[in-house]
């Protein structure tokens, strides 16, 4: 059976592979300079930030530790208590370390706000935020972003880790999903 082509569902490419590569390299340089001589831990938030994390950590030239977290999202099958749940917690302590949260996208800021509160409770020396994509039009709660890859318009985007219904994460670019994909049947 012929496999469906994911790109058929892409209305337009918003950020090309090349643009991502260039920007990630730039972020990596800045982070390397800013954290020179510090004990940096990158905390990636699964699943969407996986590609970004993988590329960003290789663009950073100073020693870094990495860790992964996953939290439940409202409305998903993992939700049962009515409260956010930590599905995957840090595997190493971060107290006294400089922590940089690595996010794929920040829109409402609700998940990130929760994570920041949670991680602050673990007494890091510093806690900052790096996101590849920022969609400020959807912001509900304001959180200062220290490193921002791209600011994008209010469109539903997929690719480079960003999903719709768990698909499209493996697209190498960031694109706009065709409305008919999520429109009611």
């Amino acid at each position: 059976m012929r496999q469906p082509d994911l790109t058929d569902d892409v209305a337009s490419v918003l950020i090309t592979e090349e643009e991502i590569r260039t920007r990630v390299a730039d972020l990596g340089r800045r982070i390397s300079e800013d954290y020179e001589g510090k004990e940096l831990t990158l905390v990636s938030v699964l699943k969407g930030s996986l590609p970004f994390m993988a590329d960003l950590m290789r663009a950073i030239t100073i020693p870094v530790a990495i860790d992964l977290m996953e939290v439940s999202s409202y409305g998903t099958a993992t939700e049962s208590s009515g409260l956010v749940r930590i599905l995957k917690d840090l595997s190493s302590p971060i107290d006294g370390r400089d922590v940089l949260i690595v996010e794929d996208i920040i829109d409402t800021g609700l998940t990130l706000n929760y994570l920041v509160r949670y991680l602050r409770g673990k007494n890091p020396r510093s806690l900052r935020i790096c996101t590849l994509v920022d969609k400020p039009a959807r912001r509900l709660v304001d959180i200062p972003i220290d490193y921002r890859g791209f600011e994008i318009p209010d469109q539903f985007v997929i690719g480079y880790g960003l999903d719709y219904g768990e698909y499209y994460r493996n697209l190498p670019f960031i694109g706009v999903l065709k409305p008919e994909v999520y429109a009611s049947p």
Partner: peptide, 24 residues
């Protein structure tokens, strides 16, 4: 099915994997 693609996409991806819930 939270985050589940609607019918068109579901049909297209049925061959790849089972239905999965999830958001970013």
């Amino acid at each position: 099915p939270a985050g589940t693609p609607r019918s068109r996409m579901r049909r297209r991806h049925a061959a790849i994997a089972g239905e999965s819930a999830g958001a970013r």
